[in-house]
Every structure is written in structure tokens, then in C-alpha cells.
Design a protein around this nucleic acid. Structure first.
Lengths: 229, 229
DNA sequence: TTACGCCTTATGTCTATATCTTTTGAGAAA
DNA sequence: TTTCTCAAAAGATATAGACATAAGGCGTAA
């Protein structure tokens, strides 16, 4: 077969990184590139589309394609289920339900999850262990108005995250990462000192506009979220 | 025109999210789908390729395409330059160089950056302010063996990050996020209390296998990294 | 000078067809 | 029964040609 779109992409990227195509400069159009590579325009198109997708180049109809002055640095972050995360570390995963209770939503949560006045929530507290040591503390609230079957479900064996993923798999979500100081309770659960700086993720999940769940995931001391790009 | 790949993608996604195509079930092959949508196979291919890219479906040659049991949750994280980050918040950006000195690499850094015995580094300490308030503390080391021109450069007006991006734009990098406790120095810079939990990013950057720079970015108290998916 | 509108151009997308590659599963051989 | 080999299936990708769409820029009118 003739030249592949991967080869075209690699060659263009080489020209860019080696300075043959300077940042800010405009590139030849697809027709000319196709001619010079001796391939079809669609092949060049796919190569350039992916480079644009990677944030290396910028494309505009009629204006043409140019090398970005400041390439967009982006990473793809996979959000794993904690059990998988731990098993990928090569550690044994254990889950424990600490506490589970249906209750009226407290005011701060009502506001945060945009719940109605009388909505009830299922409040779950769980722990996730890697090789017996505390790994993550999970504090979760599930909107019982949106997901009444959660109240009947027994969360002592499988975690709420896994249950939710299999029950309402295709949801919208917002995730945020930040640092928190361990309070006495969390310090106890995660076997660290009160006041320790801990990495925490918060996630809110919606299905068709309705808030399904809000969760705070607090990681053991020293946890890092690492990515390549 | 006939049906677009976006419409095919949207329709397939609708079928998946509404349960017409259950998680784990296999989808019709490209030829059949193209026939049923009344479009070319390439159109269906692009739609399905993007769905696979989004982690919704799983494709394997000969085995066919199936809806993922556990859809991969992934987000794209843009790594902005701090100045842009602050200006996008609608705040005024100010940069200050606190300290800059060329020195032999300390042992811990030599190990971390994989430097040779006698390599020297440029150690820069900078502050980034949003509307006059401390936003981010930057502690950076630049490998002078790889980038000798850094020693001659004056970093009092533009930050090292911006200079590096314009000098060696296309690099490989690893970034990691975690939580740290503020020590006395950082607390002073970021106007917080010693012991406060702070969000920190560490980034190591390579160009063609050679370590260029290592940086620790410590954010003001309460900083959050937020993403939608 | 300024504003509007058309023309041209580069990218975006679709079609129809063909070939390549990977992988599964069936059948043959041990 | 187990292992090996091979053909078929399905996705991956290439091609040539066509039309769609956005937008830069020029010409004309106000």
C-alpha cells in the first residue's frame, strides 16, 4: 500500500518539532501536501485533523492551517473505578461499607445537588483498602428521588460506584481535585495524622439534567495523580 | 446532503444511553449499519471510531463492535500557562521573579532529573499573582547542560514557563498532582497558614530524551482543578 | 471612508470501492 | 484431546471524485 496517514502525521510532526515548520507559520494546503506525499487528500486530511485534535496545529477554513504558536498541552485522564485502580497497582483490593442511611438532604447538599425541598438522599460512607492498608475514603450521597432503587440495594459487598456504573452507566459528570486537611475522623480512617494534607476528588453526576450522586473521595496520604503527555 | 457522521454518532449514542443497545451487547457491523442509515460505510466508520475513541464502545477486528460494559470515563485536561489561567478567571495577572541562581544540581535533583555528575542547573523561584493576591508559587530547575542559553536569559519580566514554551515548544512531559502541607516559607509566599493543605503540581519535561526542566507549582489555598465529562 | 455582498479558496464531509491487517474459529494434524 | 494452520470476517485505511460550508478579501455602493 501507499503512504499511511500515520506516516504523514509523523512526518509533519517531525517537521514541526525539528523547526522546519516554525510555530506560527502556515502549512501548505491539503491538496499540495497530498501531491507532495503522493497520496490522496483524505489521507493528508486525517493526519492534519489528528494533529489539530492534539493541539499542535490550528485549522480554519479558507484561512488554512498553521502551526500553533503555543501548542496546547493536554492530557487524557482516565477516571478508573477505585477497585480497578488498586488492582492495577498490583495490590489486593478490599471494600468495606462503613455506614449507610437514607435521610433528608442537609441544606448544603440540597443547594449543591440542586435538590427539591423534601428530597431524600442515601448517605453512604465506605472505605477502600489496598493490600489491607487504607487507600481511599468515600463519602457519597445518592439522590433517592432520581434513583429510588438505591434505597433497597445492599451495598455491603459491592461499592456504590460499581453499582451506579452498572445501573446508570451513561451519565454526565463534573470532577474536581483539590487538597484538604485531614480532620480527626478522616485521619482515623486513613491511618494518618490529623492535619495531614490529603488529595481529594469530588464528583457530581447527572443523568439527563437530574443530579444522581455527589461523592467525595479522599485518598491516603501521599497519593499522586500522574499523567504523561 | 445525506446523513452526516455526526448524526449517525448521535443516533448510536442515543440508542446506547437509552438502553436500546445494552452494555455488553454487540452492535451491527459497519456494512449493515451503513445500509440501515442509507449512507456510506466510511460515514458509519467515522461515527463508530469516535465513539470508540470516547470510550463508549469497544471495537475489535473480526470480533466486531460492542457497547462497553463499563464505559471508560475520561476527561481531557488542558494544561494552561499560569498567566492564561489567571486571565481566563478574569483577574489581572502579575509575575515576579523571587530568586534565580545557577548552581550545581543537588543530589536529590540529579537523581530525579537523571543528570550527570557535574551538570549545573538554573534554580528559579517565582510568584504568580491574580488581582494582586498570591496565586501560585513556582519552584523550577532548568538543566543548563541541555539549555545553556537559559543562564543568559533575564527572567524578571516573563516567566520561565512562557520562555520555555517559546524556546522549546514541543516537548514530552509528565505531570503529577498531589497535596502538600505548607511549610513556613510557602505559607509566607502564598499568604496562608503553616500546615495548610495545598494543591501542588509537579512537572518534568524532556526533549528527545534529555531532561529539560523540573518544576513544582504550588497553588494558593483552596485551589481546585475542575473538569467536565 | 465604511458597509455590504459576492467570489474564491481551504477545509469539512460524503460516496463508492478497494486493499490491508488482525483475529477468531473451524478443521486438520499430532 | 490438544495444538497447529488457514480461511473468513470485520474493522482499518487508501483512493478519486464530488459537494458543502465557512470565511477572507475584494469590489461596489452608500
Amino acid at each position: 500500500m501507499s503512504i499511511t496517514y500515520r506516516e504523514v502525521k509523523a512526518d509533519l510532526l517531525r517537521q514541526i518539532t525539528q523547526g522546519e515548520l516554525a510555530p506560527g507559520s502556515s502549512m501548505p494546503n491539503e491538496v499540495d501536501l497530498a501531491a507532495s506525499y503522493g497520496c490522496a487528500r483524505a489521507t493528508v486530511n486525517r493526519a492534519m485533523r489528528e494533529l489539530a485534535d492534539d493541539g499542535i496545529i490550528e485549522r480554519r477554513r479558507k484561512a488554512g492551517t498553521r502551526v500553533r504558536l503555543n501548542p496546547i498541552r493536554q492530557v487524557r485522564l482516565n477516571i478508573p473505578i477505585v477497585g480497578q485502580e488498586i488492582e492495577e497497582l498490583g495490590a489486593a483490593y478490599r471494600y468495606a461499607l462503613v455506614h449507610g442511611q437514607a435521610e433528608p438532604a442537609p441544606n448544603w447538599l440540597r443547594a449543591r445537588m440542586a435538590l427539591k425541598r423534601d428530597d431524600r438522599v442515601l448517605h453512604l460512607t465506605c472505605m477502600h483498602y489496598a493490600d489491607g492498608a487504607p487507600y481511599q475514603h468515600e463519602d457519597r450521597w445518592i439522590n433517592l428521588d432520581a434513583l429510588p432503587e438505591a434505597e433497597q440495594h445492599d451495598f455491603s459487598d459491592i461499592g456504590p460506584n460499581e453499582w451506579l456504573v452498572s445501573t446508570v452507566p451513561f451519565t454526565e459528570a463534573q470532577i474536581s481535585f483539590h487538597a484538604v486537611q485531614a480532620d480527626a475522623t478522616i485521619a482515623d480512617y486513613l491511618d494518618c495524622t490529623e492535619g495531614d494534607a490529603l488529595f481529594q476528588a469530588e464528583r457530581m453526576t447527572w443523568l439527563e439534567g437530574q443530579t444522581i450522586t455527589f461523592v467525595q473521595l479522599t485518598y491516603r496520604r501521599g497519593h499522586r495523580l500522574t499523567m504523561q503527555y
